[in-house]
Structures are given as C-alpha cells and as structure tokens.
Write a protein that binds this DNA or RNA. Structure first.
Ligand code: FES
Ligand code: FES
Lengths: 151, 151
DNA sequence: TCGATATAGGACTAAATTAGTACTGTATAA
DNA sequence: TTATACAGTACTAATTTAGTCCTATATCGA
C-alpha cells in the first residue's frame, strides 16, 4: 500500500491550518478545535514538529506554536522526515545498509534508485502546494495538476 | 518511513531471479535456494503473484513457476499492487474515500495529487530496469542513474 | 512571588498490521 | 497409483503504530 502514518497526515493538516491563519500563535487546543484531531494527539505531533524545527514553540500563557518557515519552504519530504524519519521504501534502499541476500541479489542497488526518485517527488512538493484547492478530478486531470506543481 | 512490506521486496527479488534464468520452470524450492528466502515464504509470495497474473504456475511433477510477461512489461507498481493492493499513501489519497475532517480540511484532494505522482514513478520502472547493475553511488549519481531509467 | 497557562519529555497501553508457518486440497506426470 | 508441486486458507507470533497520560519546565500577569 505504501502508506504514510496517520501522524504524518495529521501533521500536514495542522501545518496547513497554521499556514492559512498565521496571524497569531496557535495553542494545541485551538488547533484541535480547528481540525477535530484530539488534543493529546495534536500535542504529540507538534512536539515532534517543534523538535524537527518545522514549527517554533512558545511556552507559558500567551504561548503556542507558529510555523518556523514559510509554506513554500516546508516540503512534504521534511514533514515525513520529522514524523517517520527519512524515506526508505525498503530496508535495502539506503546506501549504508547491507542486505541479507548480499551477493546473490539480482536487484542490488536498484531500490536505492527507486527510493531516490520518490524522494525527489516529495521534496518538490511544499506545504504551499498542498494548500491549493483541488476539485473533483479524473486520473488525467491529476496528471495535469501535478505537472503544474512540479518544477 | 514510507516503507514497502518485506513480502513485496521478496517478490521483486524472486521475479528478478526468474527473469534472469527464464529457460525453465522454477519450483519454490529452487527459488528458495537461489534467494535464501525460506520455502514457506517463497511459496506464499508466489501464490499471490500467480493470482495477480504476474507469473504462470504449473502444478504437478515437472511443474513450477515462470514469468507471465516479459521483464519490460512488469512494472514495480504492478508488483506492489499484487502484494499490497493499489498504492495509497494516505487514507485520503484515493478519490472515492471520504475523510474524517471533511469540509474543514485545508489540504483536501492534495494527497491524491501526491499519490498520483508517486504512482507515475512506480509505473515507469519495470522489472528489467530493476535488474541493471548498480555500482556504489553518491546522491548525484543516483539522480543521473534515475534520469536514465525514466521515460 | 504565586498561580494559571502552555509546551517538553517520556512512559505506557491498546490496536492494528505484518511476517511467518502449517495444514488440507487439487492438479499433473510417469 | 504415487510422488511432486502448486492453491487456498487459517492461525500465531512479532512488530509497528496510535492514542493516552503523567510529571517537569517555562512564561506571563496579577
Ligand atoms: S533486496 Fe537487498 S541486496 Fe537485494
Ligand atoms: S486529510 Fe482527508 S480531507 Fe484532509
């Protein structure tokens, strides 16, 4: 299925909301109400995003979170990286890892190539791109839409 | 991490071996010995590949498996699809699904665009591409290598 | 300075998914 | 008929993910 974790999805929704309304600091409670994600989960996600440097956190009363960079600077790859670590579609796709099958393997190194191709896609899409309104679409229209996003 | 299941990795290794040595039918035991993947697992994977039509199976003595299509016709997307179902990086990325946050969501439809972009990559890479020998590489070299593979 | 507010960090439990194995049934060749 | 090899399915164990909670720390304002 090649699925992202729910937390990564939550993170993207939360960041998009913050990007849209960046006039003030956002508390975890406010973000929860805006997105319908439960408070403990919002809190968990934002702690991770803060540690990764994607949001800036202020403690105490009048505190809250704000984006640390503009929506054009935050890539989908960086959001995934913050929540799940670097993209690695198989154990074998990072350069440093030695795979079990070692010398016998017919496809050695090729997962790395596929992985890099996917990372390139994910690095080319920013939070700003994720906020453009999408209509109902057919497969072909997605293709067109994507052409517009890619650089 | 955006990870594929191990079974998908196994499937690709097995198909690559079959592609390289397509002179005869391959039994599960032979494939196990060639790849070091345990027999029950080889068997499980091949049953799935057979059902998906990627390999053709012959029962009985002198039986075994062979590729149902040429290595150039089998895409990485089709291998993933056979083992894990269609690629869907989030619950929200398939057109038909209604997401929880519904109307409030700032990024509605955009996971679908990202998903389609990734599918395009995976559909453009074939089993034949996965069999080209890869040297040790730097990030830039991967980029070059990938340019060569893409169409 | 005290108390209210809000995040930081970590631990913990429950749920879901994945991996691996085993068993019974069916087809084929000699 | 017998040995071989795949088909289908069920089951268990292992791993990962999601969700919650508790304690500590920082900040503001009365
Ligand atoms: S899958 Fe790891 S070396 Fe082939
Ligand atoms: S994440 Fe599903 S509608 Fe926004």
């Amino acid at each position: 299925m090649l699925r992202l974790s729910k937390l990564t999805d939550y993170a993207t929704v939360l960041l998009a909301y913050m990007a849209k309304t960046n006039s003030h600091l956002h508390t975890a409670v406010e973000l929860s109400e805006a997105t319908t994600i439960h408070v403990p989960t919002v809190s968990k996600v934002l702690k991770v995003l803060s540690k990764a440097g994607l949001v800036y956190a202020t403690r105490g009363s009048k505190g809250g979170y704000q984006l640390a960079q503009g929506p054009e600077q935050i890539t989908v790859a960086s959001i995934i990286g913050a929540l799940e670590g670097p993209v690695a579609i198989t154990e074998c796709s990072s350069q440093t890892h030695d795979c079990e099958q070692a010398s016998a393997c017919e496809i050695k190194g090729n997962w790395g190539v596929v992985n890099r191709a996917i990372i390139n896609v994910l690095e080319s899409i920013t939070l700003a791109d994720m906020m453009v309104s999408q209509q109902q679409y057919s497969s072909e229209e997605i293709q067109v839409s994507w052409q517009g996003l890619s650089r």
